[in-house]
Design a protein around this nucleic acid. Structure first.
Lengths: 248, 248
DNA sequence: CGGGGGTTTGAGTCCGTTCAAAATACGTGG
DNA sequence: CCACGTATTTTGAACGGACTCAAACCCCCG
């Protein structure tokens, strides 16, 4: 069941300017000098994507890399039996598809839009040119892949040693940093960018189990869910999930 | 419970020569020209390690990278509660410690010797020099980290979608490529480089479970275990574990 | 207002874990 | 080379988390 069409539609809004990009300083491209940045700016194309669209599909040949200007992207990996996991979420400022680009392989994952997005695309040839002109760019991506690798290994460790409930607490705490706002009464509130299925895919579990865990958390008044909206009256109980209070 | 001392002992054997290294062609260093290779050869040091020794420890500061000349190395990751997983096995020709080196972080994993090994060490400054002189080296490592990342994501997918038994079958099939020999009667035989505990750590399981799975495999005559020695009379049943025979 | 997808709930089962003890293998020193 | 002590592996019994299958529910949208 394909979730959407492959290619974004050309943006009618003016294409973002790399120099003005608010993410520039934190992205891998920050090592480029003005001339190279200008070359990047000229060679990139820009598209708008709707929720559910596929940016690229596992198995497709990789012809360049994408940079997220706005929106949210899920990186999924599937096996031949249709089992899938959601490997990671990618936010504005992040580059996606670079792994397969640098490994010079077909895509080993799929990228799907979770929140309406605008992506820039830089084709193979342009990236190569920039890499040649600026060796620092390669090292910059090396740092990025290295940190992704550490995150992946962390995930392996987590799912080998913690229950779904604890992993879900971890996920909530990570999402709160990006999505939560503080209400008048001091409680945290956020709208999850993920369906129950997506949450399950991230935790290596099933939607039914997620529903049950949510049920328990509500009974214990740790967090309250209504659709995709979550209210967390107090962070401490959630933090205790991760690090049970010590009793020496 | 530390498993060994940290530093290897200086090799009494003549240090391996990078030019003569049998792994040269497949390693990341193969992009170096003769001059740079000679510089690498001069700046590296070499040590011998016994089984159980730690090459580096999670949390230590990373002061360079290691290259495996011979032996077998396990990369482990631990959390604050003492839970550990064995993230990956590293074989001769592979470089280890590069992830943390390139991310410029303290070690996020530990490296432990599983089979007596000889490692070369290249200090931070020398690696930097080589990276400066040869931008291709960075890209070469970029390819390596990228493939490690894919492997890690594959592990996440596997352990989310397959039973311990199936994952163990996967492991056996992977190990056989490197360790198995064909006996006179056509059966495959190998000596596992891993303890039951290590196998459990690789599969995100427990030694007891591994023992039970082994028990079942023997009852079903898929494979026979005696200590670390495994005999596999026929590969097909093992392959069926991974890809159950189709019935359309 | 009638689908239809996503979500929740229920019941039952199974895989894998935990804890404990027995058996075996292993390294070391005598 | 054997004996001993320790560590690893195996076995057993019991528990429990998470899965499966199935049905009911709900909400959003046409």
């Amino acid at each position: 069941m394909p979730r959407g069409k492959n290619s974004g539609i050309p943006s009618n809004r003016p294409a973002p300017n790399c120099f003005a990009c608010q993410w520039r300083a934190r992205s891998e491209w920050c090592v480029l000098d003005d001339e190279d940045m200008s070359s990047l700016n000229d060679s990139k194309s820009n598209s708008t994507y709707r929720t559910g669209q596929l940016v690229y599909n596992q198995g497709d040949t990789c012809s360049g890399i994408f940079c997220i200007s706005s929106g949210l992207v899920a990186i999924r990996k599937a096996d031949e039996h249709g089992n899938t996991v959601l490997v990671r979420l990618c936010y504005p400022g992040e580059t996606i598809g670079y792994r397969d680009f640098f490994a010079d392989e077909d895509y080993t994952t799929s990228a799907e839009i979770l929140e309406p997005a605008q992506l820039c695309f830089v084709d193979r040839k342009s990236v190569r040119k920039l890499l040649d002109r600026n060796p620092g760019l390669g090292l910059s991506f090396l740092r990025k892949v290295s940190s992704d690798l550490d995150a992946a290994e962390e995930t392996i460790l987590q799912s080998a040693s913690h229950s779904v409930r604890v992993r879900f607490a971890h996920l909530l705490l990570a999402l709160k940093d990006r999505y939560a706002t503080v209400r008048d009464d001091g409680a945290l509130q956020m709208r999850l960018p993920l369906s129950r299925q997506d949450i399950a895919d991230m935790l290596g579990s099933r939607p039914e189990t997620i529903a049950r865990v949510i049920n328990m958390l509500e009974k214990e008044e740790v967090a309250f869910f209504s659709g995709r909206t979550v209210v967390i009256p107090d962070l401490d109980p959630l933090l205790d999930e991760i690090e049970p209070p010590q009793n020496p």
